[in-house]
């Protein structure tokens, strides 16, 4: 019988009362959950109150410097470092992964050695090395070894610290991306590339149109992680030394104001904003590559194709 006391609908022979009545369950009590929630809410409230009233947080400084032009410029630089380094890392990482999976032993082991070096040493150390690049190599020459030179680039003038920072970050990250891409490619059944090959698709078409798109579902989530991690790793490029990104710039400003805390908050706010934007981007990217797995609705491209087929038939 309904616990709420509402009259149960009249039961017929085919529809006994229990088929018509919504199940009205007495929810099990979860006192532990409630207590934990109360403790957390109270703790959060206390922390916020403390933070708002504690003068060392320097909220007025926070507000003053959040949109300071130096900070905005530094935020832009951080974003550019992240984007360029990740683009480089993805391109090199895909190549390394494909090399690793290729039947050619030389390519396989080159890829392995690359990973061994770039994953095996701290990114900070690598960045210091890149900073010394123009000391080690005075100029880059394009030409035939022991033969004529076609072009010469002085490393001192040709490569800015920004370039070196991007290169250093990208080459390090490429090693991690290579493993992510390799896992993704291996997750696609052999039958997929076999069917493509049997149809006469070339190796490149098979990779780019059949295997990679399906590997993306496995590749994207950890890559999202890597992008976010890269955003924060850019704070290490002081090692090069490149000092115009968010963390170093705000720290430099803090040395003028003699209060590091508001500047740390400013930097954190920008990092958080970028991370949130990246998470939104990742959501849409994942949805794009979900065709055929979670989403039942055909892609726009597929619908256009079947419209074309039907139009032709009519």
């Amino acid at each position: 019988m309904a616990r709420s006391g509402q009259p149960a609908p009249a039961a017929t022979e085919t529809d006994p009362a229990y088929l018509q009545e919504r199940i009205d369950v007495v929810r099990r009590r979860r006192p532990g959950n409630t207590a934990a929630a109360v403790v957390l809410v109270v703790a959060a409230a206390l922390f916020l109150y403390g933070a708002a009233t504690n003068p060392t947080y320097g909220w007025s400084d926070f507000a003053r410097y959040l949109f300071d032009w130096r900070v905005i410029e530094a935020a832009r630089n951080t974003l550019l470092l992240t984007v360029f380094a990740m683009l480089g890392a993805v391109v090199i990482g895909v190549s390394l992964a494909v090399m690793r999976l290729s039947p050619n032993r030389v390519l396989q082991s080159s890829s392995w050695v690359y990973l061994w070096i770039f994953r095996g040493t701290p990114v900070y150390v690598q960045l210091v090395f890149w900073g010394l690049f123009s000391t080690i190599y005075k100029e880059l020459r394009l030409g035939i070894p022991f033969g004529p030179t076609f072009a010469t680039l002085s490393t001192e003038s040709g490569l800015t610290v920004f370039h070196l920072a991007v290169i250093g970050l990208a080459l390090n990250e490429a090693a991690y991306m290579a493993e992510i891409v390799r896992a993704g490619l291996s997750s696609v059944e052999d039958g997929q590339s076999e069917a493509a090959t049997a149809l006469g698709l070339s190796w490149w078409q098979t990779m780019s149109r059949i295997v990679l798109p399906q590997a993306m579902r496995v590749i994207i989530p950890p890559t999202g992680n890597e992008v976010i991690s890269m955003l924060k790793t850019t704070s290490l490029v002081t090692a090069v030394p490149y000092s115009l990104e968010l963390y170093t710039r705000t720290r430099d400003i803090a040395s003028e104001t003699f209060n590091p805390i508001p500047m740390l908050l400013v930097a954190s706010a920008w990092y958080l904003l970028f991370t949130s934007l990246l998470m939104v981007g990742q959501f849409y990217l994942e949805r794009h590559f979900a065709h055929g797995s979670t989403r039942a609705r055909p892609s726009r491209r597929a619908r256009a194709l079947s419209r074309a087929a039907q139009k032709e038939q009519a």
Binding site: E189, G191, Q192, E194, A195, A196, I210, P213, Q214, F289, H291, G292, S293, P298, S299, R301, A302, L305, S306, A309
Partner: peptide
């Protein structure tokens, strides 16, 4: 093939 091996990310028509 025994296991069909249809391209999973493409519709039947594609």
């Amino acid at each position: 093939f025994q296991r069909f091996n249809l391209f999973g990310h493409r519709t039947a028509l594609e």
